[in-house]
């Protein structure tokens, strides 16, 4: 890809703390940015903030990750088309609720797997046609192994991680790069009030920086804080007979 800085970046789920931080980071490197979210008009103050601080063009786009029927049109109307598409879409939901209610579980699965996978898959097809592009999916360490405390969310993220891995495999020779991001704990609105260990918790700007660098270096899969790679390696390798009795 030549003149990388002029490549427009599409952030799906731009309202989130991580999404905005990513938008700022790429805008600081002079990328035009498209902020996509539900009720996108409410992001106008963030749009002007990013545009003023970094002197780039920032546009808003209405996007609902559950509205799969509208996805093709959504992608088609973006002009110029984005060269880098980053999905930060996700919602943890409430595990107990997801156990008790089929609707709640469905929403978590669709929000964390179906929606993000479909939209990134669609953009990947468009990019493959042109022979260039970068797809970034923000998945989760929760997808590395299902645990009692959040396996509905975790399984959806596991599916998303697997989807990204397959996509990367298929498009490896076609000029389209796919990056999987597993942030670990992040200090955001979603985790506000939780008592998170400081050493394991990244700031949104730190996640954004890690993604920015990983895109530049064409990394395949990253944990934002390296310690998470170690933690998850341990968790993945605990034998099931023992694991099923743990409370993690």
């Amino acid at each position: 890809m030549t003149s990388e800085t002029s490549v427009p970046v599409l952030v799906l789920g731009a309202r989130s703390d991580i999404g905005l931080a990513i938008a700022h980071r790429f805008a600081a490197a002079e990328h035009p940015v498209i902020l996509a979210a539900r009720r996108a008009a409410e992001l106008d103050a963030d749009r002007s903030d990013i545009a003023l601080r970094h002197g780039v063009e920032v546009t808003l786009a209405e996007f609902d990750v559950l509205d799969t029927a509208a996805m093709a049109d959504f992608a088609a109307q973006l002009s110029p088309p984005p060269g880098i598409v980053i999905s930060v879409v996700g919602a943890m939901g409430d595990q107990a609720e997801s156990e008790a209610s089929l609707d709640a579980a469905t929403l978590v699965m669709r929000t964390n797997y179906e929606g993000p996978a479909l939209i990134l898959g669609h953009f990947a097809e468009l990019m493959a046609g042109k022979g260039s592009g970068v797809i970034v999916g923000v998945s989760s360490v929760a997808g590395d192994r299902g645990r009692a405390s959040n396996y509905v969310y975790g399984s959806a993220k596991a599916g998303f991680t697997a989807f990204l891995s397959g996509l990367r495999n298929r498009l490896a020779g076609k000029g389209v790069h796919v990056l999987t991001v597993k942030p670990g704990f992040v200090d955001t609105r979603m985790t506000e009030g939780m008592d998170l260990p400081q050493r394991l918790t990244a700031a949104p700007a730190e996640v954004a920086e890690a993604i920015f660098r990983a895109v530049a270096r064409r990394r395949n899969e990253i944990y934002v804080r390296r310690i998470w790679a170690l933690i998850m390696a341990v968790i993945r390798n605990i034998p099931e007979p023992i694991f099923k009795k743990t409370q993690l």
Binding site: A45, D46, S48, D49, L52
Partner: peptide, 23 residues
């Protein structure tokens, strides 16, 4: 801490109170 608008003719910047002078 968001910057909301800037008018290059008058030089007037509208911003939220948490913006730092450094920003």
């Amino acid at each position: 801490n968001r910057m909301l608008s800037f008018d290059p003719d008058s030089g007037v910047l509208v911003a939220e109170a948490g913006v730092l002078l450094a920003d």
